[in-house]
């Protein structure tokens, strides 16, 4: 640091002064030095001008629209589509839970879909769609009434969209999905940090209809609480801990039965 009376200005302090990285005392010391050393003062001025010119020259690049290649590159990251699809495919085709999934997949007779497929279907849909940034949903939350009406019509039952604000999640929107032989719906929620939950719903008719007790399943890293209420099977998925998810599931259940 330089102080009045000191004989030399350290080169480092001159640059830190240019870059605005000195505290008040050090800044004062540099200014005192510069007042009596015009050559250094000229350098300070020149280097500051360099910085200003760099900004004038290159700041416009900040505002330019992204070329398609960069959009694609960033979207790959943001959406994680290849990874998500690979995860979904691996699940469906490999052993372990995948084998179970395929087993459950075809274990549905005429009476309807086995409830065992519900958390897996929901978790796959969760993994595929939650990384989406540009198109996380087909219909967004601003058209909530339309979303509920549309998906109710497609699923053939009256769907309500639960609100999860009390646990910090806002509705993002929803989309229509294919389940094995019927449509399904997915509603997506997001908290302030961007963490997402999805609620999957499908008609759960026939003998697959179960009591409404919550069940828990960990599908890969996705936690799922699922239950059947009336003729609809619901599954709430999230990559959050079980207790938090249960809290959200309880809110969802209550909201659905208002």
């Amino acid at each position: 640091m330089n102080h009045p009376g000191q004989t030399n200005l350290r080169e480092e302090d001159l640059h830190a002064y240019v870059d605005g990285r000195l505290d008040a005392a050090a800044r004062q010391a540099v200014e005192t030095w510069l007042a009596s050393h015009p050559q250094d003062a000229a350098r300070v001025q020149a280097y500051r001008q360099q910085n200003q010119l760099l900004h004038s020259l290159f700041d416009p690049a900040l505002a330019e629209p992204l070329p398609p290649a960069l959009q694609a590159a960033s979207r790959r990251r943001r959406r994680y589509v290849p990874a998500a699809m690979a995860a979904a495919l691996a699940w469906m085709t490999l052993g372990g839970s995948g084998g179970w999934l395929l087993h459950a997949y075809y274990q549905t007779g005429e009476t309807g879909l086995s409830i065992a497929t519900l958390p897996q279907r929901a978790a796959i849909a969760h993994v595929v769609y939650t990384p989406e940034v540009l198109h996380p949903v087909e219909v967004d939350a601003q058209q909530e009434t339309h979303l509920a009406a549309w998906l109710s019509k497609r699923l053939g039952t009256t769907l309500r969209i639960p609100h999860l604000q009390t646990v910090g999640y806002d509705l993002v929107g929803g989309r229509l999905l294919p389940d094995r032989d019927r449509p399904a719906a997915q509603f997506m929620y997001q908290d302030a940090s961007g963490r997402r939950l999805t609620l999957y719903a499908r008609l759960q008719n026939g003998t697959a209809r179960e009591p409404t007790a919550f069940r828990y399943s960990l599908e890969n890293k996705v936690a799922v609480f699922y239950w059947v209420d009336g003729d609809v099977g619901y599954a709430l998925s999230g990559e959050i801990d079980k207790a938090q998810l249960l809290q959200a599931a309880e809110i969802a259940y209550r909201e659905l039965n208002l």
């Binding site: 290159f58 690049a61 960033s74 979207r75 943001r78 990874a83 995860a87 940034v133 890293k221």
Partner: peptide
Amino acid sequence: MTADTPDIAVHIPRLRRYARALVGDAS
């Protein structure tokens, strides 16, 4: 894949600015 991974995309404009200045050619 976790929902709370930060968004790389918000940094693209500044990466572009730096790259532009560094290599001197937009493409």
